[in-house]
Computed example of a mutant assay.
Amino acid sequence: MSIATRTAAEVTASTIATGRSRDRNPGSMIFLGALWFSLFFGVVVLAVLIIDTAIAGSQRFDLNLIQGYESIVRKDETGFRAGILGTIWLMVTTALITIPIGIATAVYLEEFADKKSWYNQLVEINLQNLAAIPSIIYGMLAAAIMGLFGFTFKGIVLGGAIALGLLILPVIIITTREALRSVPQDIRQASLALGATVWQTTWKQTLPSAIPGIATGTILGLSRAVGEAAPLIMLGVATVRFDPASLTDKVSALPIQIFNLASAPQDELRTAASAAIVLLLAMIIGMNALAIFIRNKFQRTW
């Protein structure tokens, strides 16, 4: 091999390995500049919106915001206690319903299912499509399920949890399967070679190794469900002025209260809605931060 050929091969290998290219022609530079401008513009607009919302709601950053209920008489003291507790009820119930089903489905499809069978291929296609369906459709489906169970009023904790669970179920299944795929096949083969069954290998080797990825995907799915309002509106979830105590109690949610108060004509209610938006953003950012911490703390390199 000549020196020129060897040098070109080394440059190509270095470019592939590092992901960097020394190509600096005008077209590539313009495209790179457009990418950076798009990223910068999106971040700036988001930052401006958050800062403007925080300034608008700064007068209501007090304890009454989270301890009080929505007030008809004293609008300047309206609070979101019912919405916050309702959101917590919905998230816990959603997690209890969805996480076992999602993980079990992902384990079956990834570790036990016959990839060539037509029904498993149909499930694969549907999973990819379900992740792109508008969230309001899941509200309609949950309303139909609640009707089958004989519930005349569907805006209860169980109904909201079913809607949000259906919404994030494809996300949990897909992320769990990706976490299982990241576990090297050598671990499975070594366990099977020592006499373990496929189930024992999955339960004691594969699943524990995939827990960081599973936990991260699950938390990210729940953080998406926290901010959803469309499926809950479809179920008739509205503002209530009491704390839910069971799965069959009427429930409110923070996004629903924000939606209602943001369109109110009174300035005091719109100010409270702005403060609640910042509170909801803090909850979502906190859940995302927890997911990042779990990923960085417990991830394994093979």
Rank of each mutant, 00 (worst) to 15 (best):
T93D: 13
M91Y: 04
A106E: 09
S209W: 13
E268Q: 15
T7M: 10
R295P: 11
A210R: 10
E124R: 14
D76A: 13
M283R: 08
G68A: 14
L130E: 06
K75R: 01
S117W: 04
I133E: 14
S58C: 05
I174W: 00
R241D: 05
R81Y: 12
I3S: 15
L46F: 14
N64R: 11
I156L: 05
M283H: 13
Y108D: 04
G102Q: 09
A95V: 04
T53P: 02
A245M: 03
Y108N: 13
K204S: 14
G217T: 09
R300P: 13
I133L: 06
S223P: 00
A95Q: 05
L169W: 12
T271V: 07
G221D: 00
T202V: 09
A54C: 13
L96S: 00
Q67Y: 14
A4R: 09
R81A: 03
R270C: 05
L279S: 07
F242I: 02
W89D: 01
G150P: 03
R224I: 06
V43Q: 06
A132V: 00
L130M: 05
Q67G: 12
L49K: 09
I168R: 01
L280K: 13
A210I: 08
E70R: 12
K115P: 13
L39K: 04
L63S: 11
L46Y: 14
L232H: 04
L46W: 11
S274I: 03
P208A: 15
N260E: 02
W203M: 08
R188H: 02
L280A: 11
R224P: 04
G83F: 04
G217M: 06
F259E: 11
L122R: 12
I233H: 13
G102N: 01
A179E: 08
G213T: 01
I292G: 08
E124W: 15
S182D: 03
G147V: 00
I97G: 08
F41Y: 12
L141Q: 10
L222Y: 09
R177M: 05
I294C: 02
R270Y: 05
I233M: 12
L254G: 08
N120A: 02
V278P: 00
L63Q: 14
L222E: 03
F80K: 07
T201I: 01
A282N: 08
V226K: 01
L127G: 07
L290Q: 05
F41T: 11
N288E: 03
F41N: 07
A273Y: 03
G195A: 07
R22N: 13
I125S: 15
A47N: 04
I88P: 07
S252K: 11
A253R: 10
A289F: 10
L280N: 09
I55S: 15
I214V: 12
I136Q: 11
S223I: 02
T201D: 08
L235S: 02
L207N: 13
A56F: 03
R177S: 01
M287S: 01
E110T: 10
Q189D: 06
S246N: 08
T87F: 01
L130D: 06
A142H: 01
